[in-house]
């Protein structure tokens, strides 16, 4: 069964990964390759790296940063930011990207989507749509202009699918960095409008926010930008929270026994048996358990 992906988004500004709040406030966090290294170690399913300065500066995604990121972990990478041509896409795929992400370019030059899809395959092309609710509808937000444009998000998403995009990366401007949860209405509308996978981002602050998306919408992937930097093993603990709270399905195929969860464990460390405090952080373990650990040896995993 295809799992739902837990994805980290690294927003890059001034050459470093930053926290993004409302598409206007940015807080410096760390270097991209260190983030990739640790997110990979923590079993993240995929990483999206978006350089938000690139378009405005008239350049493409920095190739050295792409190389450093690709060399830092064993996770799929989607790179985006200022990509304007097939040649640039080819360079990025060569430097270690698995997929590339188009934002402004998809709107200004829709032909690029179909051209790139033909050359590299739809599975390499992600279109990123930033959405904001204005006058009773979800409109596309142009981050370089700093405001919405007169394009309906659903129409645009459908158009991108027709042109050959493989995935939609959907961002909610209003929820960005607020830590109050995702925009479930937006997510449901877009997931119903297209038949290609949709990844959603914007608003994660607590593991239950991810759970809400998984239970109430049909997103193929749930992403967060700021959240995964907040605590140690954030990805693993969050996955554990989700796995505990989601119904585990019996496998349909009679040839294969056992169960499956839509959240895939990807790391040696799994936080089994953990409980969570109100902030969604791992709570203290039982004292008897801690006592029992005095005589336990836990080896490192070596492949």
């Amino acid at each position: 069964m295809l799992g739902t992906r837990l994805i980290a988004c690294l927003v890059v500004k001034n050459g470093i990964a930053v926290q993004s709040i409302g598409f206007s406030k940015y807080l410096p966090v760390c270097r991209v390759e260190i983030a990739v290294e640790y997110l990979s170690r923590w079993g993240i399913d995929e990483i999206v790296i978006v350089d938000i300065d690139a378009s405005r500066a008239g350049r493409s995604f920095d190739l050295e940063m792409a190389q450093a990121a690709a060399g830092a972990g064993f996770v799929p990478l989607t790179l985006g930011g200022g990509i304007k041509s097939v040649a640039e896409i080819r360079m990025l795929l060569k430097q270690g990207a698995d997929k590339i992400c188009l934002n402004n370019s998809a709107r200004l030059n829709p032909g690029l989507i179909s051209e790139a899809a033909k050359v590299f395959g739809s599975q390499c092309i992600v279109v990123s749509i930033d959405a904001t609710f204005v006058d009773g509808e979800y409109k596309v937000y142009d981050y370089s202009l700093g405001r919405e444009i007169e394009t309906n998000v659903l129409d645009f998403a459908k158009e991108c699918e027709k042109l050959g995009a493989g995935e939609i990366f959907l961002n909610s401007v209003a929820n960005d960095g607020l830590k109050q949860g995702f925009d479930l209405d937006l997510i449901n509308l877009v997931c119903k409008a297209v038949s290609i996978p949709v990844i959603v981002i914007g608003g994660a602050g607590h593991p239950s926010h991810f759970l809400d998306v998984l239970k109430q919408a049909k997103a193929s992937g749930v992403a967060a930008g700021n959240y995964f930097h907040f605590f140690e093993h954030s990805v693993i603990a969050t996955k554990n929270y989700l796995r505990k709270n989601l119904a585990v399905k019996d496998l349909v195929d009679p040839n294969i026994k056992g169960k499956e969860s839509i959240i895939r464990p990807n790391s040696y460390v799994d936080y089994k048996g953990i409980s969570f405090d109100e902030m969604g952080r791992p709570a203290k373990k039982d004292e008897d358990f801690l006592e029992s650990q005095r005589f336990e040896f836990h080896p490192e995993e070596i492949i």
Binding site: Q19, L27, P28, R31, I34, E37, Y38, H229, F230
Partner: peptide
């Protein structure tokens, strides 16, 4: 990080990570 450059909001309730240590304490 919070104290000097506002790396996190106080409401993020950031906790110790090996990631921060490697990059910022130990310079990589």
């Amino acid at each position: 990080g919070i104290d000097q450059v506002g790396m996190f909001s106080h409401t993020d309730q950031v906790e110790m990570t090996r990631k921060y240590r490697k990059e910022h304490d130990l310079m990589g």
